[in-house]
């Protein structure tokens, strides 16, 4: 079906993210987050017209004067869902936004994070996403833990659902085992292919559901409603013009 619509990678991920957005919840993404921004707007125009959405740094979807006001909003428990990406995401739900390689002599030094080290803990539902599904993006353990899937016993933490959306599958953090496991695999990929591209062990012994195929309504709404709206409202207008067909 993705071939039928000739979806870009960004369109595909935005559609899958949109499905996690719910009416009467407040969902948000950071300031350099075109894909979840498109996904949240798509949800508002499809199944979740009553969803409250926050796109930091945007003109029309950022009702805060400063970054700290947004963080306090989350710390108070008024944010239901947040989007996080990372250069690496490991089998324990840890993500890395700091360094690749030796921490004291890194191969790659990244800018670090602004709020995700807090938001991963203060927000009940987390949608992580990654534009590349390879062993280097999904290693056994991250080079540096910028955010931890699991906290020490007793820590006040609100996170109760962590899902990871990739170009190949959807992973979910098992709240008992504290490990990422397969929720569904996108059509055209086999469990073996997903495992080969993942640096940690996935249980593929039992049958894994297929991710519900992308629908014509999702694609046309994204292309004909969300795209022009993003351009007109100056919400990542250049990326919307380029990455949504």
């Amino acid at each position: 079906m993705t071939e039928l619509f000739d979806l870009t990678l960004e369109e595909h991920l935005a559609i899958l993210l949109s499905r996690g957005i719910r009416d009467f919840e407040t969902s948000a993404c950071g300031a350099l987050s075109f894909i979840p921004a498109a996904g949240m707007l798509l949800a508002q125009h499809t199944h979740a017209p009553m969803a409250e959405i926050i796109i930091l740094g945007s003109r029309d979807y950022s009702p805060f004067s400063t970054g700290k006001d947004f963080h306090y909003h989350a710390q108070r428990g008024q944010l239901d869902l947040f989007h996080i990406s990372g250069i690496e995401i490991d089998g324990y739900g840890n993500f890395n936004l700091h360094v690749i390689g030796d921490r004291d002599n890194p191969d790659v030094l990244m800018p670090g994070q602004y709020g995700t080290g807090m938001l991963y803990y203060a927000v009940p539902r987390i949608q992580m996403f990654r534009t590349e599904h390879t062993p280097r993006s999904f290693p056994e353990t991250v080079s540096y833990k910028s955010g931890a899937g699991t906290s020490p016993e007793g820590i006040a933490r609100r996170t109760r659902e962590v899902r990871v959306i990739t170009p190949m599958c959807i992973l979910v953090l098992n709240q008992e085992t504290r490990l990422l496991e397969l929720e569904s695999i996108h059509e055209k990929y086999t469990p073996q292919e997903v495992q080969e591209n993942t640096g940690f062990d996935l249980d593929i012994s039992s049958s894994i559901p297929e991710t519900p195929p992308v629908t014509e309504q999702e694609v046309t709404t994204l292309r004909q409603v969300v795209k022009p709206h993003m351009i007109e409202s100056e919400t990542y207008p250049d990326l919307a013009a380029k990455l949504i067909r």
Binding site: N94, G117, A122, S146, G147, I155, A156, R157
Partner: peptide, 25 residues
């Protein structure tokens, strides 16, 4: 702060971050 527990940030900056009991809960 609601955050950072279990990360390498805390491990590497134990001079700046600690884990303490909430005296009220």
């Amino acid at each position: 702060v609601r955050g950072f527990s279990g990360t390498d940030i805390i491990e590497r900056r134990s001079d700046t971050f600690k884990i303490e009991r909430n005296p009220f809960e």
